[in-house]
Design a protein around this nucleic acid. Sequence first.
DNA 1: GAAACCTGGCGTCATCCTAA
DNA 2: TTAGGATGACGCCAGGTTTC
Length: 218
Amino acid sequence: MWWHQHNLCFRRPIEEDYSSRDVEEKVATIAETDESAESEGVIDSHKRREILSRRPSYRKILNELSSDVPGVPKIEEEKSEEEGTPPNIATMAVPTSIYQTSTGQYNEETELAPSHMAAATGDMPTYQIRAPTAALPQGVVMAASPGSLHSSQQLAEEATRKRELRLMKNREAAKECRRRKKEYVKCLESRVAVLEVQNKKLIEELETLKDICSPKTD
DNA sequence: GAAACCTGGCGTCATCCTAA
DNA sequence: TTAGGATGACGCCAGGTTTC
């Protein structure tokens, strides 16, 4: 991982905590003080989004930190140089035609169709990715070919297919993003521990030097 | 034991950012 | 300029913990 490779997180102090719950508490506090919001009793989700300004990504922050330190490479795209990449990262390593997620089972890539089976948690749809040509509805294939007639239904199917594909990719991306973020937080925590030890040692050293430089006269 | 609260994970949406 | 990946934010759920 990039932060492990470069030991990036041991360079500069932590500047920000990325707890979304903290943000939610702050927003809630703001909302409580907002008279109009009080009168409504509920904050509109759009209003919440306006209140919440998007924070810079943790990856960007690390880049900025590293740019101040000569010899520290910037964070690039995550390379899978490291061995032992978790096999459950579906977007990176799908060894066979089937892989499992928490909400559904995915078959081999390329074609997606919502099955809307009731997932374990409730009404989350599950998706099956079908093989390229085998089970593909003919209408979808025709819609993809140039010059063919596009009925409104075919267009709708195509739009739906694209949406499902995008959702599936985003789902996997979100998982990967969370995994990276957890590692990032762990990294910061270990950095705190190291700096605390260093600080303690320096304080002890300072006390020792003070004793040496100013010996007691009585 | 039930209710309240906390925590962690997930899917989705909106937005940012970058490569093409 | 645009498509697509990355990620912050939101809402929901399940499981664990605390309080009564």
